[in-house]
Amino acid sequence: MAEYIKLYEENPNPKDVKRAIDIVRGGGLIIYPSDTVYALGCDITNNRALEKVANIKNVKLAKANFSFVCEDLSNLSDYVKQIDSTTFKILKRALPGPYTFILPGNNNLPTVFKKKKEVGIRVPDNNITRALVKELGNPIISTSIKDEDEVIEYTTDPELIYEKWMNIVDVVIDGGYGDNVPSTVIDLTGSEPVLIREGKGSLEI
């Protein structure tokens, strides 16, 4: 059964952050808050955990469009090809924030994603998320947890999320009520930004 860990965004308790990340580092799956919806994730360097997430989402891992959640833009060059100054300015203005930016991936992508030419990058404006990533030392995979209810697309109550997921994942972070609007997705791989999905992030960036 999953561990249920309460964290406060103003000041996430380092001991509890470490407890959660010890589970993730050991290959565990985590549900955590962001500045948009609650997300399912794992360590991007753990292939077995990545396979589990792909199975839950019912997709083949090589084709999965999982985003990488980074602590800040300093992680960027680890996985993204060199970008021009215009692209960097957009990222700097918008992040941290409720956006997923699709960028050209480089050769350092984890083995399972090597065939992908691009990667979705998130830097959420949420202290809990960034504290988790910082403790881990590399990005966490992010994929939103959908609700089967046709009316409510995303569950916002962490206790209800725990009830539903406690036998599927290894740790659920309660960071308070989540949002029910996903991130805005913008493709920056071409010469002009292309809106893929309008979400919580403003288009004025």
Rank of each mutant, 00 (worst) to 15 (best):
M1H: 13
E9T: 07
E10G: 02
P14I: 13
D16H: 14
K18W: 06
R19V: 05
I21Q: 04
D22N: 15
R25C: 00
R25H: 06
G26P: 01
L29R: 05
I30T: 00
I31E: 01
T36N: 06
A39K: 11
L40K: 07
L40N: 09
C42Y: 00
T45V: 01
T45H: 02
T45A: 11
N46V: 01
A49K: 06
E51C: 04
V53G: 00
I56R: 01
K57E: 05
N58G: 03
K60F: 00
L61K: 08
L61F: 00
A64E: 05
F66Q: 11
F66R: 10
F68N: 13
D72Q: 13
L73Y: 11
N75L: 13
L76S: 10
S77Q: 13
S77C: 10
D78N: 14
D78V: 11
Y79R: 14
V80E: 09
K81Y: 00
K81S: 09
Q82P: 09
I83L: 04
D84M: 04
S85H: 10
T86S: 13
T86F: 12
F88G: 05
K92L: 05
R93T: 14
R93N: 15
L95G: 09
G97Y: 03
T100E: 02
P104D: 10
G105D: 09
N107Y: 02
N108M: 08
N108W: 01
L109Y: 00
P110G: 14
P110F: 04
P110Y: 09
T111I: 11
E118T: 15
G120H: 07
I121R: 03
R122N: 07
V123W: 03
V123A: 04
P124H: 02
P124E: 04
D125Y: 05
V133Y: 10
V133E: 14
K134T: 11
L136I: 01
L136E: 05
N138D: 11
P139Y: 11
P139R: 15
S144P: 13
S144M: 05
D147C: 10
D149E: 12
V151N: 12
I152T: 15
Y154I: 15
P158G: 07
E159A: 08
E159V: 08
I161W: 06
I161E: 03
E163M: 07
I168F: 09
V169S: 11
V169Y: 01
V169Q: 08
D170Q: 14
D170A: 12
V171W: 03
V172F: 00
D174K: 13
G175Q: 02
G176K: 11
G176T: 10
G176Q: 12
G176M: 04
Y177M: 14
G178D: 00
G178F: 04
P182L: 11
T184G: 02
I186R: 07
D187W: 09
G190F: 03
S191E: 06
S191R: 12
S191M: 03
E192Y: 12
P193E: 03
P193M: 02
V194D: 00
R197V: 02
E198N: 05
G199I: 07
K200I: 01
G201H: 00
G201R: 05
G201D: 05
L203P: 15
